[in-house]
Design a binder for these strands. Structure first.
Length: 396
DNA sequence: TCTGGGGTCCTAGGACCC
DNA sequence: TCTGGGGTCCTAGGACCC
């Protein structure tokens, strides 16, 4: 039996969030974004979109084409608070929810649609607007991919149902870049093969076109299932568990000033370490991203056996990486990321073999313990006796 | 007009181990 | 003497999404 998956997508979320607390501004074109010389628009209200303002557009250009634009700074904590209300609201209709991002989620409504479907979905949409003040587009379909495509079909305040038998009629005429997962680069390449619409794409997938397979890699097979209506309908209800924690910053002007660069590495490292501590994560890899004057990215990373959330350690690692690889370079952006994250609370499972507090005091032994832990994880339990021989091992 | 910042996932080569 | 193949980890880069 096919499921009923609903994709709910908040319309112009950040901009709407600002209009909610500044109702007097809602009759003006409004956008949320940075204020620096190199900032871009994060979200534009629909009034601003009518003037041509859109996401990722440089603020300078937005101001040029829409001089009356009201630009507000991004207030992430506020949007997160509203986002929590949004998901709490959705949970009233089903406990099976996947939070896909801050402003969109999948809901498994199988067996929960009461009465006339359109009236039912409309009441979900209207309830959100009346109770929280947020506008959303709803897409309803048997798979997550189709539901996502459906919610994109009409904005704002759209309600679109795509059944399997509607795929050709509804999706095939759409331009290739509206296919979720096909971005600018892939779209340009596909157009070279004469693939301009989702319909062209579907045909190429079905015919196993070799050049398309080469262009898309693994995604070829995923896309083939998606467009046939055989994509995943599984809701991932697990809470957000980050796989990396990073911060990056674009300089207002490109610089080769070493002290300036060091200062930024310091503050980025501090932010990353604080982020890791807040999320109770430690990482085994630190990476440095440098964007040069020509907008080319260069990354260098280093891994180590003991996970860290130490600001000093992260700062030393990225400083070394910079000194050894990019000394003298003029940079546009610097980024610091902690990856290979482990949850320190889970890390301590093996520690229960020993009295860990004792080891914390002894640096040398601490390193040994961690090295052994890593080996023990791989199943070589005989190492336990090795540790005892070297002394300091307390069974508990 | 000159292009943010937070992420995820994929690819591909090389090292290393068995 | 010449030469396997699988698995995992590390590293760099790139596409994509919100």
């Amino acid at each position: 039996m096919s499921k009923i998956i609903m994709h709910a997508d908040l319309n112009a979320f950040f901009a709407t969030a600002e209009e909610l607390r500044h109702p007097e501004l809602s009759s003006y074109p409004l956008a949320v974004g940075g204020s620096g010389p190199r900032s871009v628009i994060s979200t534009a209200s629909y009034l601003a979109r009518e003037k041509g303002v859109h996401s990722a557009m440089p603020v300078a250009e937005a101001r040029r084409i829409c001089p009356s634009l009201i630009l507000l700074p991004v207030d992430f904590p506020y949007y997160e608070m509203l986002s929590r209300s949004f998901f709490a609201y959705l949970k009233r209709f089903s406990p099976h929810i996947e939070e896909a991002s801050i402003d969109e989620g999948y809901v498994d409504l199988t067996g929960r649609v009461k009465g006339d479907p359109y009236a039912f979905f409309s009441s979900i949409q209207q309830g959100l607007l009346k109770q929280i003040g947020l506008k959303c587009s709803l897409g309803i379909a048997p798979t997550k991919f189709l539901a996502k495509m459906a919610s994109d079909y009409k904005k704002p305040l759209g309600i679109t149902i795509i059944r399997k038998r509607d795929i050709a009629q509804m999706l095939y005429p759409l331009p290739i870049e509206s296919f979720y997962g096909v971005g600018k680069k892939s779209a340009a390449r596909l157009r070279l093969f004469g693939i301009n619409t989702i319909g062209d794409f579907a045909l190429a997938l079905k015919n196993d076109k070799e050049e398309v397979k080469e262009t898309l890699g693994k995604f070829f097979y995923t896309a083939n299932e998606w467009i046939a209506g055989e994509g995943s309908d599984l809701i991932d209800e697990s809470p957000f568990d980050p796989k990396s924690i990073g911060h990056s910053e674009t300089f207002p002007y490109d610089t080769d000033d070493y002290l300036e660069i060091r200062k930024h590495l310091l503050s980025l490292s501090r932010s990353v370490a604080e982020g890791a501590k807040a999320k109770k994560k430690k990482g085994r890899t630190v990476s440095l991203l440098v964007r040069d004057t020509h907008f080319n990215n260069h990354s260098k990373s280093v891994s180590f056996s003991e996970p860290t959330d130490s600001f000093e350690f992260i700062y030393e690692r990225v400083s070394d990486l910079f000194d050894h690889n990019f000394l003298g370079m003029t940079v546009r952006l610097l980024g610091v990321t902690l990856q290979n994250l482990v949850d320190p609370r889970k890390e301590t499972v093996q520690m229960s073999f020993w009295n860990f507090e004792e080891y914390e005091k002894m640096d040398q032994t601490k390193l040994l313990v961690h090295e052994l832990n890593r080996k023990l994880e791989k199943g070589n339990l005989t190492l336990l006796s090795e540790l005892k021989k070297k002394g300091g091992g307390n069974e508990s």
